[in-house]
Amino acid sequence: MATSGDSAPDFTAPLANGDIESFTLSERLEDDAPIVLAFFPGSFTGVCTDEMCTFQDRLANFNDLDATVYGISRDTPFTLNEFRDQNGLEFGLISDLNKEIIDEYDLEMDFDDLGVYGVAKRSVFVVDGDGEITYAWVSDDPGVEPDYDEVEDAVEAAA
């Protein structure tokens, strides 16, 4: 599992930002770092919606620290754009439809009782301009949200 001190696994995936474009982590580090990667199991679910809306509510704080927030889930980029629109999210959401990023970060979680497999564990990583993970939080409980103050503190330390 990716953890603090590791080099962040690089990836290229679709970015839903009102449009759809290609996103490569290593190419975004120079301009966007520190980068917050907030993995969530799925759009339009209670806790995931609360989490992404809380990041939106705190977006000005991250912007003040020159940090960039991205959400990541297995949803299609089209679903993610609709999720952004319905919740007024101003940050990009990355589609990991093929589960490649989840595998690289070792974050796979299943909901056996629902027949849902291979979604992301709720987790947050802060990546600095050198591509190092300076903060890692991973929850095995999908109902637990991150400590947002702790994430902001980690971003401030990485800035």
Rank of each mutant, 00 (worst) to 15 (best):
F111M: 14
N98Y: 09
P77Y: 09
G115M: 12
F62V: 00
E82A: 13
E104V: 00
D19K: 14
S26A: 14
A154R: 01
V126Q: 13
T76R: 02
E30K: 15
A2Q: 08
L29N: 11
V155A: 03
L15S: 10
A2K: 05
A33V: 06
A158D: 07
V116S: 07
T54R: 14
G115C: 12
D112Y: 11
G5L: 05
A16K: 08
I35T: 05
G46F: 13
D66C: 01
V119E: 12
S26M: 05
T76G: 09
L107M: 08
A154Y: 02
F83I: 00
G18S: 10
I72C: 08
S95D: 07
T134D: 09
L25D: 09
S95Y: 07
I101S: 08
V155R: 04
F91S: 03
I35D: 06
T12F: 07
S26Q: 12
P14D: 14
D75W: 08
T45F: 10
L107W: 11
E104G: 07
N17V: 03
A158P: 08
L80G: 02
Y148C: 02
D140A: 13
D85M: 00
E30Q: 15
F44K: 02
W137N: 07
T76W: 08
E156V: 00
E30I: 01
T134A: 06
L25G: 10
Y117H: 14
R84K: 12
S139D: 10
F55Q: 03
E132L: 05
D66S: 15
E27M: 02
E30T: 14
